[in-house]
Computed example of a mutant assay.
Amino acid sequence: MKSYIAKKSPDALLRDYPIQGKVDGWFFRCREESPCQFVAVGEDLWGRKVCSDNIDYDAALTDCINQANEILNREQGS
């Protein structure tokens, strides 16, 4: 049985994911979880998530953004 997935509010996502405007419809955050270990997480309005970790803040965030772009590209290609 399929269940309905409700579209999330952008305002609600901004509370947890303050970085926006990198990928249309996606919101991101990047935090230092332990010394020199950054974890970037992104979520879209439909609840899909991407995640990346790295010793570099920008590299973690860039990888997360690239994953979100891949999802959008696959979605447009189908």
Score class of each variant (00 low, 15 high):
M1V: 10
K2V: 10
K2F: 08
K2L: 15
S3E: 15
I5L: 13
A6G: 02
K7R: 15
S9K: 02
S9T: 00
S9W: 00
P10M: 01
A12V: 12
A12S: 13
L13N: 02
R15P: 01
R15Q: 15
R15N: 08
D16N: 09
D16P: 02
Y17D: 08
P18T: 00
D24G: 03
G25N: 06
G25S: 06
W26E: 10
F27G: 02
C30I: 13
C30Q: 04
R31M: 09
E33S: 13
S34L: 02
S34W: 01
P35L: 14
C36L: 12
Q37R: 08
A40I: 09
V41K: 13
V41E: 14
E43N: 03
E43G: 04
D44I: 09
L45C: 04
L45W: 01
W46K: 07
G47A: 03
R48C: 08
V50S: 03
V50Q: 10
S52A: 12
D53S: 13
D53Y: 07
D53N: 10
N54A: 14
I55N: 06
D56Q: 13
D58T: 09
D58Y: 06
D58A: 11
A60Q: 02
L61A: 03
T62A: 15
T62G: 13
D63G: 07
D63W: 03
C64N: 07
I65G: 07
I65S: 05
A68I: 08
E70Q: 12
E70T: 09
E70W: 10
I71P: 01
L72R: 11
N73I: 06
N73E: 13
R74K: 11
R74D: 07
R74H: 11
E75V: 05
E75M: 07
Q76H: 04
G77R: 05
S78I: 09
